[in-house]
Design a protein around this nucleic acid. Structure first.
Length: 595
RNA sequence: GGGCGCGUAGCUCAGCUGGAUAGAGCACCUCCCUUCUAAGGAGGCGGUCAAAGGUUCGAAUCCUUUCGCGCUCACCA
């Protein structure tokens, strides 16, 4: 079906040729949705044409409107307010649109894998502690962006890199060796990531004690931090790990395997997954090789102490170290290696890194270095930078244990959903298992929607009290509307795509919902361009509000006696439910049949 | 200090390439369940869009400056 705006643009060009003998360029024609308080569907801004029309804004609007009304079927009426020409679109356009999507099961979606291959990296945790609220934003965003890209026709590869080596994991290992009494997840009944995380916290406590003791004994703070026995021990362990000392490697493997098992369960609850995992322990040496291989590039240089640097001053950045004087890799070197491996393996058009905005500088540098090394594909690297999640009490600090644990939070949301549901008591006759499933859907839906509805770039505040409110602009509100629609469809024995509504007249309520549905494809496309699930989330909210108004202000469909009108409305209901369900699933949120 | 980002109602957030009287939700105050699920709907209260200049027929949106907040600039990851 021909796009409405395109049709109007063509018609307006024709108008200007006929009335003013002028050929317009597309950008001059500004169309926007008519605001609710005025009559009409689409508004043409006439100010830019005053030089051509040589008339007042009102007269110009009148002239254009009159021509359109008389000569273009699409436009049935118009009105002019100041310099705005409001056009009323023929309602047959809307019913034709509705008919055109009836048989599509996912209108707005592009053909699967019709576009290039792209990679989305997200999550990328450290293996020394459990996932927390910050990771939830990362995972929800990454997973949703991947789904949105896929729906837009891209072939998407979801990956994460697991930071499984380094001083942080050695800290947990040392603490476990010293204070662990051979505890295991089985012996304690704790999730593996929680157990290991506890020892990370324990390490920090001991470390702080030792520092305090050393300072009391006359050392400076700086000395104390370097000399505390427990940190020395952790560093020594890292050296032994790199040297491949069997019992250390064994311990490392064991503790990491605990963590992976814990992560797996958290990911399952979150509803996210990956096509390929990269482990830093596999890739960290490759970065070094790659850097050494490109040592002759003009901007790479070696200092007297043997460390290797890159000069980025020409790009208004600093000099950046790539290899330490002892020849070991730093963070960015590993990322260089990983990026190259990925390109060799997948040849993607774009590499999206979902990583917090505190690493903006790092990713600028990474892309730049790779380009300087001569990799053209590095231009496709894009950092999907998102803001931090704050708590009302301030910032989260994992070492001090002031974090909101991901598992705890998700469970709490599910429990809240359960309490509210049971209080409302609408779930008669539902099996217990089905109920539990529903509580998870609602609880997680609330959490995901709460996080995804805000612009990823912005820092956001997570207020637990507000997140537990299931009224208003929330996931459950949307899920509820879906359930209500499904109930209507059940009661009227609606069979998908099987109804025809002939020439039932559309009233304003019908049109307002259809118009919102009409915007779905464009919103889906725009959210892919901007990599913003928030756009989609806010669209769905708008759709749901419009539908609820329709629901409240039309006679109950189940009791509607005019078959054509009934069928029309059922169609609107079915398509709205579908758009809600598809849209929410792109946010990684399930939508129930009943609630 | 350099770089990047942010600042919209009491609170949390929308506001697309500049366009009409700046919108929602929460909170607070009214209504509406003998019409399909009230986790809903209708209405009220609440804003010098951080500030000042500039560009424009027209600025929350673009430019400049200032103020405030955050992040970042490690031989940490």
């Amino acid at each position: 079906m021909e796009n409405l705006n395109n049709q109007l643009v063509t018609a307006i060009k024709e108008t200007f040729v006929a009335l003013f003998e002028t050929a317009l360029d597309d950008p001059q024609i500004q169309l926007q949705k008519t605001r609710k308080e005025f009559e009409g569907d689409i508004t043409l801004v006439v100010f830019p044409f005053l030089r051509i029309t040589k008339k007042s804004p009102e007269q110009s609007g009148e002239a254009i409107g009159e021509y359109l009304k008389n000569n273009i079927d699409l436009v049935v009426d118009y009105n002019v307010v100041k310099g705005f020409l409001n056009l009323v679109i023929n309602s047959s356009y809307w019913s034709d649109f509705l008919k055109s999507i009836v048989t599509m099961s996912a209108f707005g979606y592009a053909q699967l894998n019709s576009k290039e291959r792209v990679m989305v990296e997200y999550s990328s945790p450290n293996t020394n502690k459990p996932l927390h609220l910050g990771h939830l934003r990362n995972n929800f965003l990454g997973n949703s962006v991947a789904r949105i890209l896929k729906a837009n026709g891209y072939e998407v590869v979801k990956v994460q890199i697991i930071n499984d080596r380094g001083i942080h994991i050695c800290k947990s290992m040392v603490a476990w060796q010293k204070f662990g009494n051979a505890e295991t997840p089985t012996s304690t009944g704790l999730k593996g990531d929680k157990l290991v995380g506890n020892y990370y916290v324990r390490f920090d406590q001991e470390y702080k004690k030792e520092i305090a003791a050393l300072i009391a004994a006359g050392k400076t703070e700086e000395e104390a931090k370097k000399e505390a026995p427990i940190i020395v021990e952790a560093q020594e362990m890292l050296r032994q790990w790199e040297a491949g000392k069997p019992e250390i490697v064994e311990l490392w493997k064991t503790m990491n395997s605990w963590v992976y098992k814990g992560f797996e369960s958290t990911y399952t609850t979150m509803g996210v997954d990956f096509d390929k995992l990269y482990y830093e322990s596999d890739t960290y040496l490759i970065g070094k090789e790659k850097v050494l291989a490109y040592i002759d590039t003009e901007s790479l240089y070696k200092k007297d102490d043997g460390s290797i640097w890159i000069n980025l001053e020409g790009d208004k950045l600093d000099n950046k170290i790539l290899l330490r004087s002892d020849g070991t890799s730093v963070y960015i070197t590993q990322d260089i290696g990983t990026a190259i491996i990925r390109e060799e393996e997948f040849h993607c058009k774009n590499y999206y890194y979902v990583v917090g905005n505190e690493q903006d500088y790092h990713f600028n540098v990474l892309a730049l270095i790779l380009q300087k090394m001569g990799f053209d594909w590095a231009k496709g690297i894009e950092h999907l930078s998102y803001g931090m999640v704050d708590l009302p009490s301030g910032k989260m600090k994992s070492r001090e244990g002031t974090v909101v644990d991901a598992d705890d939070l998700m469970l709490e949301m599910k429990n809240t959903a359960q309490e509210i549901s049971e209080e409302l008591g609408k779930l008669e006759g539902m099996e217990d298992e089905e109920k539990q499933d529903l509580f998870w859907q609602i609880g997680l839906g609330a959490l995901k929607y709460f996080i995804l509805k805000v612009d990823p770039k912005k820092r956001m505040l997570f207020d637990p009290k507000e997140s537990v409110d299931f009224n208003g602009n929330t996931g459950p509100f949307i899920q509820y509307t879906h359930a209500r629609i499904k109930s209507i469809l059940r009661k009227s024995n609606y069979i998908e795509g099987s109804l025809d509504f002939k020439n039932a007249p559309l009233d304003v309520e019908d049109i307002s919902v259809i118009k919102q549905l009409y915007d779905f494809p464009e919103t889906l496309n725009e959210s892919a361009i901007q990599k913003s699930p928030a756009l989609l989330a806010n669209y769905i909210y708008e759709l749901v509000k419009v539908f609820n108004h329709f629901y409240q202000n039309t006679t109950p469909i189940v009791k509607e006696e005019n078959e054509d009108i009934k069928n029309l409305r059922l169609m609107i209901c079915a398509k709205t439910a579908e758009a809600i369900s598809n849209g929410m699933s792109l946010l990684g949120i399930q939508v129930p049949e009943k609630m």
